[in-house]
Design a protein around this nucleic acid. Structure first.
Lengths: 260, 260
DNA sequence: TACCGTTATATCTTAAGGTATATAATGCTA
DNA sequence: TAGCATTATATACCTTAAGATATAACGGTA
């Protein structure tokens, strides 16, 4: 038994962007004409034309621009607004697909019971959510040490219970997300003493927001990976941190949760 | 612009359980006959019958039992297996609906950009995920103190950054989930000294799993809410904890993340 | 055996969608 | 400027699938 689902954007209760229409729009973008696009999808010219017409009528701004006659007899192009909508749909669809995959993995479809605790669709308050690939898993008696390789090349080691690893079904090579609160990130300037904490990642400060007591420091660790640390305003002074400074971010491995 | 989506279970590539059919099945359960159910939904008798037939043919075990002729002219009842499937669908549907709500909340539909960091569909390694209602939010300069009232009546206070509160769009009265690692839960026996930690919840131990170094203790705090703590096997002995013992679970408010 | 309420099946109706083809628009070319 | 080429636009007709309605089959009851 398998799960399947469609995703459609509605406008005033009318279906507006659905799977088939998206396909059509992409084909129009590629071929520059409704008739060619209809052939490519494939669908009848009539339905293609009606779909395009319906979309243009429902939308505030036109999605496609149609020209009849002219150089090559005319043609149809997608407006920038239309392209933006396509991108929106793509993003939503991707997230939706991910959700369905996860949902069917997590559900025992015969009984309807969730194999996992907790909800699936959740936003989490933690500012630091960094994706990586599972490099190794060392299982102890109760805990497991999971090493995550980030796309920036850095490694993050997380210690979670063995049971959690099983619950998530984590294997080497899987992609997973390291999750930790910004208040668990400590900052040090290079050249200081060694710490017992396993995770120390070098980067440069890209932004600092100073409050009365605490300061929020954004550390760029390369390849668009970013860490956020909240430290006391005092420490900020003591360490003499400024935007552009090189720092080492330190996170205790037991402070890192994993998600997938 | 609105998001909408259907959820259908497929069997061998064929649509098997879809929205309409689920409705029909519930109506059959209520009325005990296909014809009455068809009227109630409403749909034509033919499509109702065909739907039932298709489902029975696709399924390994029959979903409905049909009797023609007899006492009241016959009738149709749903088998226990069918009822289980209905329950499965209900659970999946609920999760799916939640996801869509969250997705449309979180997406700026004009630009397709996510207003939030991180994925939406994620399982998290943390064993402790407890739902509650936001009772109060006290915003400081950088951090915010969010008080969550659990259905067991207990309160959990979480300290997260003000920005995270805004990101989640948390307001008083919202339901939210407290998330924390089992290793951040400390246990104490009643009558000990006061601690600075804001969160202390009384409960009784419902299960203990002892490892070589660590032990996992499951604490029932009432109303089906459960906490999991991982403590050292030594502490277990020192505190003389057994199944059934009354304990106080202590969690630092800064160790609690929030999700919604 | 006549009757009843139901499942099961057959026949008819309707609406949606597809195919095909005609028409309109426009720049290009001779 | 008169076709010409090419595409959008519109319409007529056909096909098919879904839906509605009518009818048969069934098995118990009175």
């Amino acid at each position: 038994m398998e799960l399947s689902s469609t995703l459609t954007l509605e406008m005033l209760g009318e279906p507006f962007l659905l799977e088939k229409r998206i396909e059509l729009l992409y084909a129009i973008e590629e071929h520059g004409s409704i008739s060619k696009a209809a052939k490519a999808v494939p669908m009848s010219y009539k339905s293609a034309w009606e779909a395009v017409d319906a979309m243009n009528n429902l939308s505030e701004q036109p999605i496609v621009q149609r020209e009849t006659g002219g150089k090559n007899g005319g043609g149809t192009t997608i407006t920038p607004y239309g392209l933006k909508l396509l991108e929106t749909y793509r993003v939503l669809k991707e997230e939706h697909t991910r959700f369905l995959e996860r949902l069917s993995q997590v559900t025992d479809i015969e009984s309807g019971a969730f194999k996992t605790i907790g909800r699936l669709a959740m936003q989490i308050s933690a500012r630091n959510q960094i994706q990586g690939k599972v490099e190794s898993i060392e299982s102890g008696a109760v805990n497991a040490k999971v090493s995550l390789k980030l796309k920036s090349g850095n490694r993050l080691v997380s210690v979670i219970t063995k049971e959690a690893v099983e619950n998530l079904g984590l294997k080497e090579g899987d992609s997973a997300t390291a999750i930790f609160k910004s208040s668990t990130v400590m900052l040090a300037v290079p050249g200081e003493m060694q710490l017992s904490a396993r995770n120390s990642i070098r980067g440069s400060i890209s932004h600092i927001t100073v409050g009365e007591v605490n300061a929020e420091v954004v550390v760029d660790i390369g390849h668009h990976d970013v860490l956020v640390a909240v430290i006391t305003a005092d420490s900020l002074k003591t360490l003499n941190l400024k935007e552009g400074s090189n720092v080492t971010a330190i996170i205790k491995s037991s402070d890192i949760m994993l998600g997938r």
